[in-house]
Design a protein around this nucleic acid. Structure first.
Lengths: 155, 155
DNA sequence: TAGTAACTCTACCAGTTTTATAGACTAATG
DNA sequence: CATTAGTCTATAAAACTGGTAGAGTTACTA
């Protein structure tokens, strides 16, 4: 059931970097791609999606680049992952926001799988919607403090 | 992030039916396939996997078929889903049982995504490993009681 | 106000995974 | 020992994922 796409992992990695660079103003796609080891064109598409979703903002022209649209404590993991990978529910008919009836389900009111997966969805959402980029940032810093320090962000 | 495969949904559907038929002895693949609307050959492969994992047992020859290998309260959703769809963790490096280092992760001890996804994994596992086929069976019965009754199992 | 740095968009492609099918083979039961 | 029913191998269409190419557009700033 392994499920977070590489695309989403790239997105998160990029956002961690942008969070750290929040103060320093817009970051260039090319720089971000190189520093974080993400295929440039692929990253381009990812950042664009995040921008269209209101998570990032961009500035064109000289001195431009990408930056967080809101402060890091206003952006949750749930928001990010939903943008890139879609609903959190393990099964479309268990999604709160984007309910989709599933073909092989005769009657979803009595579907056992659905009832269990609704619980799973709620558990996942509870965690991801309450964890912000700022929280993750703090956790990273804390881990780095207690182990030997590297300066790169891992995904 | 929608993630439970159709194969797993078929597996669960078939297992619900086998749970209900527990008393009546082995069920034929062909019957199961028709009743539950699952492609016959595909179901065959699924049942075989479940058998190899010790969840089902089969009997060949006349009067043969498939049946649960253990009683329904000894089979958890977690066991079933792991057999068909692999680890529950949304990311390989967050898996407890089948840890796989992820390529783009420089240092997993300080990886923010990993730390969050470990929490998610634990939450998912807590639910799926404590829910048995018998539990689901009960829930289905309860739902059927409180709504208008249909006799089919939905997935 | 022109040049250029940088973002935006469309289209495409290759590889993998998922879902599904066909048929030959093997084993056990009555 | 025939029949019934499960097992195995191979194959293939379809969908998805990850990645690439290049033309086009926008907005800074000198």
């Amino acid at each position: 059931m392994t499920n977070l796409s590489r695309k989403a992992r790239y997105a998160l990695k990029a956002l961690y970097a942008l969070t750290a660079d929040e103060a320093r103003g817009p970051v260039l796609i090319a720089d971000l791609a190189e520093r974080e080891n993400i295929p440039r064109k692929f990253l381009e598409a990812i950042l664009l999606e995040l921008k269209n979703a209101g998570i990032l903002k961009s500035k064109k022209g000289k001195g431009g680049g990408y930056a967080l649209a809101r402060s890091a404590d206003q952006i949750t993991m749930g928001q990010i992952i939903r943008v890139i990978d879609g609903p959190l529910a393990p099964i479309p008919c268990a999604s709160e926001r984007v309910f989709v009836r599933c073909e092989e389900c005769t009657d979803e009111t009595i579907c056992g799988t659905r009832q269990v997966m609704k619980k799973v969805r709620d558990a996942i959402a509870a965690i991801l919607d309450s964890t912000t980029l700022a929280d993750v940032q703090t956790q990273i810093a804390r881990s780095r403090f207690s182990t030997t320090a590297t300066v790169t962000y891992s995904i």
